[in-house]
Simulated assay, not measured.
Amino acid sequence: MTRLMPRLSLSALAPVAAVAALMSAAAAQPVAAQGMQMSDDERAAFRAEIRSYLLENPDVIFEAVAEFERRNAAAQADMDITLVEINADEIFHDGHSWVGGNPDGDLTLVEFMDYRCSFCARAYPHVMDFVQNDGNVRLVIKEFPILGPQSEVMSRFAIAVQHLGEPAQYEEIHGRLIGWEGDFTETSARLLADELGLDPEAVLAEMRADSVTQVLVTNRELAQRLQISGTPTFVLGTGERGEMLRGFLPADEMRGRAADMRG
């Protein structure tokens, strides 16, 4: 997943946190509850015993890390379900995002994506494989440019095409931009608009329009409420409830998630 800002992984920090927690417990004088106080020598000896035990049994640390990450993932999944329920209308039926796949599908796959995101490009064929082979999935694309000015220019172009053209033209341009190499310039926009049969000047003007800006602002605000900081991020659901899938998923895993959701 491409993130808005880099951050250390929990797996990198958790071993340190586990040891720190144990040492803090040692410093907390566990016998104080019984009205006893450790002397400095007793406290030092107790800490030495903990250190010795961890050195002799390092697997304990990784067991604690695994349990920590399991609990954290479960808590995040529960929170994601709640966030989806609260924001379901804007996620699944915002009225401005492009809708593809089967418009009457029993499940909807929503993707927050950025055209400069390498993981989005990697995910693209898997998304299309899943949607096309399932045949009963509605696909919603939310333009979410977070990787700089080029990302925003490309999203503005795609939204302008959506506003001025037909759904099939947006679908075509979405597929072309996701694999775009090099800079995307005004000349690029003119050439692509002309290839689509659209007026290049009208497209360039629409790219600067308030209506396009509002789409991007609305998508960013929704992403903030959903605690989305990276792309791609997916929401798979029924239109009223669903689960968030943070990061790239292969088509087979998407099919598995869909099967579970359908029961």
Rank of each mutant, 00 (worst) to 15 (best):
A160I: 07
L4I: 04
P30K: 00
F130W: 08
L147Y: 02
E56S: 09
F248L: 12
T233S: 11
L245R: 03
A27I: 00
S39W: 13
L55N: 04
I178F: 13
S211Q: 08
N133L: 11
L139N: 03
S24A: 12
P232A: 05
P167Q: 13
I61L: 04
D59S: 10
M5C: 00
S155T: 13
A25F: 10
A48T: 10
A168E: 15
A48E: 14
L83P: 10
S11Q: 12
V140I: 15
D80M: 08
F130P: 07
P232Q: 07
F92T: 00
L13D: 01
Q150F: 00
N57L: 04
G239Q: 09
S155N: 12
L4Y: 10
R156V: 03
T238V: 05
I61K: 05
E67D: 11
G175Q: 06
T231P: 04
L139Y: 14
E243M: 12
R138T: 12
T82L: 11
V140K: 09
C120R: 10
Y124N: 15
P30V: 02
R7L: 14
E111C: 07
A209P: 01
V65N: 04
M254S: 03
G263T: 06
T233K: 01
L204C: 04
M128W: 14
G242P: 07
R176D: 11
L22N: 00
E69F: 02
I91D: 04
C120Y: 15
A74C: 00
T2P: 03
P15Q: 01
A168K: 15
F68I: 09
I61Q: 01
A251P: 07
A123S: 08
R138H: 08
G237M: 13
E111P: 04
A189P: 06
Q29V: 06
V161C: 09
F62V: 05
Y53K: 02
L83R: 15
Q37L: 11
R7K: 14
T231Q: 05
A209I: 05
F144K: 03
F184D: 03
A193N: 05
L109A: 05
A77S: 14
E67G: 14
L192G: 07
I141L: 15
F144Y: 15
D183I: 01
T233G: 00
L204S: 11
L249P: 03
E63T: 13
R255M: 11
M154T: 06
A123T: 02
N57I: 07
A202R: 15
I86W: 13
F157P: 02
N87A: 04
Q34K: 09
E171P: 06
H163K: 14
Q37D: 10
T231S: 15
V137N: 08
L8Q: 08
C117D: 07
V203I: 15
I146N: 01
G242E: 04
D260A: 15
T185L: 07
S151I: 13
I91C: 05
D114V: 11
